[in-house]
């Protein structure tokens, strides 16, 4: 590959100073965004994605309703300013449509859609900044937005990208690394360890696959801890706020009573 940038230097550091298995800094913002039923902003390093979830609600198009479960509708839009070079993508862009379809098929087995027959869950994904691992950020943000909207899920879905430079596997690639080395995105459900998505657009030697796949699964658990902490913080705060007002049903004595049991 004719890249001038060294993806992994002799000291074992990557171009942004990380080690091979080090993930980028992840931040999660679960605060209310407009009128959405649930929303989340997730950043992985310089990649930032905003997801808004609406629903379950009455399906806008009658033809899309299913009598036994809810229909999940995913729309992805990529901001023109999200890349280094300003570029407007149309809504019908094939790559974007494919990403929306990927997100949809990732979440269909995880969301308990059978609880909401004849309705529709709308997921609007907006990519605000891209620096590699866009799909991973989209999936993580969608999970958090769905949790935030109170939509029943079997488990969190945690996604990580991984790549292999000759024989050394790396996790959570930046755009620079994604351009240079073969990479794949893995989404796992940490509780059971089930994998809901593996996608790869580049060619990777079959002998290298197993290692990076296993590593990505492990990294998913790290991401899961991060997401769990954010959800716990947000839920705890809201529960606390609800309890702070005058409460019609008394229940404060409970905790003391339980300690004695």
């Amino acid at each position: 590959m004719g890249s001038r940038v060294e993806v992994l230097n002799d000291g074992g550091f990557r171009s942004d100073g990380r080690r091979q298995y080090e993930l980028r800094d992840m931040t999660v913002d679960l605060s209310q965004q407009g009128v959405a039923d649930g929303s989340a902003v997730v950043t992985h390093g310089l990649t930032q994605v905003l997801v808004s979830v609406f629903g379950p609600r009455e399906a806008k198009m009658r033809s899309q309703t299913m009598h036994d479960r809810a229909n999940i509708n995913v729309e992805v839009s990529v901001a023109a300013f999200s890349t280094g070079e300003r570029r407007k993508r149309s809504r019908g862009d094939k790559r974007i449509l494919e990403m929306a379809a990927t997100i949809k098929s990732t979440f269909e087995p995880v969301v308990q859609t059978t609880l909401y027959p004849r309705s529709q869950i709308d997921i609007f994904v907006q990519v605000l900044q891209q620096d590699g691992g866009v799909l991973q950020a989209c999936i993580n943000a969608t999970t958090l937005a769905l949790v935030n909207a109170g939509i029943p899920l079997l488990d969190f879905v945690c996604a990580v990208t991984g790549g292999v430079l000759s024989t050394s596997p790396m996790l959570d690639l930046t755009l620079l690394e994604e351009n240079d080395i073969p990479h794949l995105t893995v989404a796992v459900m940490p509780k059971t360890g089930k994998v809901t998505l593996v996608t790869m657009e580049t060619r990777l030697h079959v002998d290298r696959f197993e290692e990076i796949f296993r590593l990505a699964g492990e990294a998913g658990k790290v991401i899961h801890a991060e997401m769990k902490a954010a959800v716990r913080e947000r839920t705890g705060r809201l529960v606390g706020a609800m309890g702070s007002g005058p409460r019609p049903t008394g229940g404060d004595f409970e905790d003391d009573a339980m300690d004695g049991v």
Binding site: L153, D155, G251, A257, M258
Partner: peptide, 24 residues
């Protein structure tokens, strides 16, 4: 702990506490 000797009066309202949970 609540399994063997359940005292219903004490345990009807669990709302007050902060027993927060999340999917999975």
């Amino acid at each position: 702990a609540a399994d063997d000797a359940m005292d219903l009066d004490d345990e009807d309202f669990e709302v007050g506490g902060s027993k927060v949970t999340w999917p999975g």
